[in-house]
Simulated assay, not measured.
Amino acid sequence: MTSADLLEAWGNHLRDGRRRSHHTVRAYLAAADRLLSAVRIEGWEQAADIDGQTIRRQLALRRSQGLSNASAARELSALKGFVAFARSQTGRDAVAPRLRGPRIKKGLPRPVTPDEAVNLAEMVGGSASDDWIGARDRAVLILMYGAGLRIAEALSLTGADLPLGETLRVTGKGGKQRVVPLIPIVRASVEDYLSRCPWPVTKTVPVFRGAKGGPLGQGMVQKAMARARIALGLPATATPHALRHSFATHLLGAGADLRSLQELLGHASLGSTQIYTRVDAATLLDTYRSAHPRGR
């Protein structure tokens, strides 16, 4: 069995078995490919015999090439996952070598204000080359901010999800499903786009379409928002994903409890949601410093 065969099976497992995103699959395959090239593995038995010392040497090589802590942690996760999968293919327990990754200091998400979120959506909608494209981009951003969706989740909507009701069932990371409420402005934005879209939206095709009728890519949304961000003088942290952070921060500030927020965001653990308590506290502190006569 060649390295290409091993990588193909690993990639299929990530895509179909683990439902990993395209970007994750690509990164994990690249990490496994580098390891296989370094140790010259020819089958599952040899791959299953890869130990912690071998992985540690591979990571040391990658760190010498300038790999950051965050990238090294992802590479380690990929290699441990690959070895665990290899062991499962030989009938062994799917257990990876026990290695501790580098410490990663998590920065606080940078939300935008409610007014900034709306202004970004309106700027994107008004600056597009065609009315229907402007309505499309506006609808995507309003959907992300109004329902807290990841960009991939928003773009995965198909005609089967239409017409939009008061709630939407979303499939997030790891195939985890959740139900999110849709406020009127979200439904109205999507309906406005659909009324202008020149492409038919059937049950099996994506709701959001590119200029030539294909699925809308994340890059197009990111570019549209970058142009709007610059026009409005907002910082580089005002990305599409910041709209999801804003959704969470604003709900928490309005009194939402962490468990409810966890469900709405589709987080697997409450720990991922708790970071927003720090965001809200940081926002409060910024407000205090700017408003209090002795705050500066």
Rank of each mutant, 00 (worst) to 15 (best):
A27M: 03
M225R: 11
A9K: 06
L168S: 15
G81R: 09
M220A: 15
G271W: 07
L270P: 01
T287V: 13
L120H: 03
Q274G: 03
A72S: 15
Y28G: 11
K223C: 07
V25S: 15
T249Q: 08
A48M: 12
R296I: 06
S68T: 11
A84N: 10
G101M: 00
H13K: 01
G219R: 07
A78H: 00
M225G: 04
M225E: 04
R244N: 02
Q46I: 00
L155Y: 03
R19A: 14
T24D: 11
Q222D: 12
E45T: 12
I183G: 15
R227T: 08
A188K: 12
A135V: 07
L243D: 01
A139V: 11
A48S: 15
A73Y: 00
R20P: 00
V221Y: 01
A160T: 07
A238R: 03
S127P: 05
P215D: 06
S189E: 13
W132P: 02
L14M: 07
S269G: 07
P240K: 10
F247T: 01
I104W: 09
A238G: 10
L194D: 11
L194W: 06
L36S: 05
V112P: 03
R103L: 10
P111V: 03
N119M: 08
L61D: 15
E116S: 14
A4E: 11
L194F: 05
T167V: 12
G146T: 12
R15I: 13
Q274V: 00
H241T: 02
R196Q: 09
E263I: 10
V190S: 03
H22K: 05
R103P: 06
V279D: 01
P109D: 08
D161H: 04
S3E: 13
M1L: 05
S64N: 14
A38S: 13
G253C: 05
T237L: 11
L76M: 11
K176G: 08
D192F: 04
G134A: 06
R74I: 00
I151H: 01
K105I: 03
A256F: 00
D5K: 09
L258G: 09
T167A: 15
L258V: 13
L252Y: 00
A211C: 05
P109F: 14
A73F: 00
V83R: 02
V221G: 02
R110F: 04
A231P: 01
S290D: 12
Y145F: 09
A160I: 07
R178P: 05
I185K: 10
K176F: 08
S269R: 13
R15D: 14
Q65M: 00
L232P: 02
S21G: 09
E166I: 00
H292D: 09
A96P: 12
T277K: 12
V25H: 15
A117W: 01
T273N: 05
A248G: 05
A268V: 07
V221A: 10
G101Q: 02
D51Q: 11
G43Y: 05
E45M: 07
